[in-house]
Amino acid sequence: MQKTSSTPTDRKFYSVVDPELDKYEGVVLFPDKLAIANEVLRTKELPKALRPKVPAEK
């Protein structure tokens, strides 16, 4: 594993990068759960508190 700094200056925050994780890029690991989540997002409505505020039409 390799540690890389988040910025060019050497700060105390490091992220660990594992090159073996690159093989999972673009791969759906749980297709059945993804299908359920997409269906819920497509069919359910947002609560009123989370809906975008649209100005009233004249």
Rank of each mutant, 00 (worst) to 15 (best):
M1K: 05
Q2Y: 04
K3A: 07
K3H: 09
T4C: 05
T4Y: 00
T4V: 00
S5D: 04
S5T: 10
T7D: 13
T7S: 14
T7F: 01
T7I: 08
P8Q: 04
P8E: 11
P8D: 14
P8H: 03
P8G: 10
D10N: 07
R11H: 08
S15I: 04
S15L: 00
V16Q: 12
E20I: 05
E20M: 09
E20Q: 06
L21W: 05
L21H: 01
L21D: 01
D22R: 02
D22C: 05
D22H: 06
D22T: 12
K23F: 01
Y24M: 03
E25A: 12
E25K: 15
E25G: 11
G26L: 06
G26C: 11
G26E: 09
G26P: 08
G26S: 10
G26M: 04
V27P: 10
V28D: 15
L29H: 02
L29Q: 09
F30I: 03
F30L: 03
P31A: 05
P31Y: 06
P31Q: 08
D32G: 00
D32E: 12
D32V: 01
D32M: 06
K33Y: 00
K33A: 15
L34G: 07
L34F: 04
L34N: 07
L34I: 03
I36A: 15
I36K: 13
A37C: 06
A37R: 01
A37H: 03
N38P: 02
N38W: 00
E39W: 02
V40G: 15
V40Q: 15
R42T: 13
R42P: 09
R42A: 14
T43V: 13
K44W: 00
E45N: 09
L46K: 12
L46D: 15
L46A: 15
P47F: 01
P47A: 07
K48T: 13
A49H: 12
A49V: 15
A49I: 15
A49N: 14
R51I: 09
R51K: 12
R51F: 01
P52L: 05
K53F: 05
K53V: 07
K53Q: 10
V54S: 06
V54L: 13
V54Q: 13
P55W: 02
P55C: 04
P55E: 08
A56H: 08
E57W: 09
E57F: 11
E57M: 12
E57K: 14
K58F: 14
